[in-house]
């Protein structure tokens, strides 16, 4: 039986190999701070089919309890079934706060959960602040020009946390928490929206999330051929290829490579921006990068204002020379 009444419920997501996502461990860090302020415990929830091992692994990250919902109908995310299962867990745990990573799944699930529970939701939260016992949740608004701090007029608080806003909780050798299986009743026949097919589209190269180096192109790259050249540089650096919005809209780069407000928000060690002018919506997605390189022929381009290294020149000349020199250095 779930023991931690009035606790912080942390929704843990796993990848295809049942590995816990880093963002979920970052939620644990924020969740513990939040639980302390609210005077309750932390409960990590894992939902899926065949996710028992992940639940066991989750007991090593310092949460008070791990709830496991293992059900054959939860193989892949289906909103109606996942939300139904989640609400049944909420009845048992009665959480004061629910934390999720700001992932593609929670973009869909978090609002459903919040509206079903008649409560509020702060999405894309970048800071959980506790001051004088009051907890507030900070998020960027107005294309990341302004920060807004919210409190809740209702409970539970529902919050999705942006990637890399917190350090990931560290794994401990000992597992303090136990795994509590929670039975849920699901009626797959009652589902209104039916998934007919799940299609995996080709996805060459490393993913943006978690990439240590990203080579990214903008409108200045001029076309799909330009992106092939960026890919060659990226391959040499074991980097992922990103893009600002225009190349994605124009079909030069796959939509999933979009970095920005509505694309991926990334924070690699090195971000190489090629032919990117630096529109606000793009900068919002990459300004947390540790170091930024800008290559652009326009010395007045906005991107130079936030870059650490800059080369003013046509990328068609700069990038091939850069690639060759990198290849020499790498030998």
């Amino acid at each position: 039986m779930v023991s931690s009444e009035g606790s912080v419920l942390i929704v843990t997501e796993v990848d295809k190999n049942q590995e816990i996502l880093p963002i979920s461990l970052e939620c644990v860090t924020a969740g513990k701070r939040l639980a302390e302020a609210l005077g309750g415990g932390t409960v990590a929830l894992i939902m899926g089919a065949g996710v028992g091992e992940a639940a066991k692994e989750m007991t090593h990250y310092g949460v008070d309890e791990v709830c496991l919902v293992d059900h054959p109908d939860l193989t892949a995310y289906q909103p109606e079934l996942y939300v139904a299962a989640f609400l049944q867990v909420c009845e048992r745990v009665n959480p004061r706060a629910i934390l999720m990573g700001d992932t593609l799944t929670s973009i869909d699930m978090a609002p459903r959960v919040a509206f079903a529970l008649n409560t509020g939701l702060v999405t894309d939260c970048v800071a959980v602040e506790v001051s004088d016992g009051e907890v507030s949740f900070v998020k960027p608004v107005y294309s990341s020009n302004v920060m807004a701090a919210y409190t809740f007029a209702s409970e539970p608080y529902v919050v999705t946390l942006r990637s890399r806003a917190e350090e990931a909780a560290e794994r401990q050798e000992t597992a303090d928490a136990g795994v509590t299986p929670v039975d849920v009743k699901l009626d797959a026949a009652s589902v209104r929206t039916e998934v007919l097919q799940r299609v995996v589209e080709e996805d060459a190269g490393p993913k943006l999330t978690g990439a240590d180096i990203i080579v990214s192109g903008g409108r200045g790259v001029g076309g799909p051929e330009g992106f092939e050249q960026l890919k060659e540089l990226a391959d040499l650096l074991h980097a992922a290829v990103g893009a600002s919005r225009p190349p994605c809209d124009l079909g030069w780069a796959p939509p999933k490579s979009q970095v920005g407000q509505t694309g991926e928000k990334v924070a690699p060690s090195l971000y190489i921006a090629v032919g990117i002018s630096g529109a606000t919506q793009h900068i919002a997605g990459m300004q947390s990068s540790k170091k930024i390189v800008a290559i652009n022929k326009d010395p007045k381009a906005n991107i130079f204002k936030i870059a650490d290294y800059g080369v003013i020149g046509r990328w068609e000349e700069v990038v091939p020379a850069l690639r060759e020199a990198v290849s020499e250095i790498r030998k």
């Binding site: 919040a114 008649n118 409560t119 509020g120 939701l121 702060v122 507030s136 960027p140 990341s144 020009n145 302004v146 920060m147 807004a148 701090a149 919210y150 409190t151 809740f152 007029a153 209702s154 900068i283 300004q287 947390s288 930024i292 130079f304 204002k305 936030i306 870059a307 650490d308």
Partner: peptide
């Protein structure tokens, strides 16, 4: 409303 806006402040823009 379910949320209470408490504070607005300028975002720190990255300065390279």
């Amino acid at each position: 409303n379910k949320l209470v806006l408490k504070r607005l402040f300028p975002a720190e823009m990255r300065k390279g």
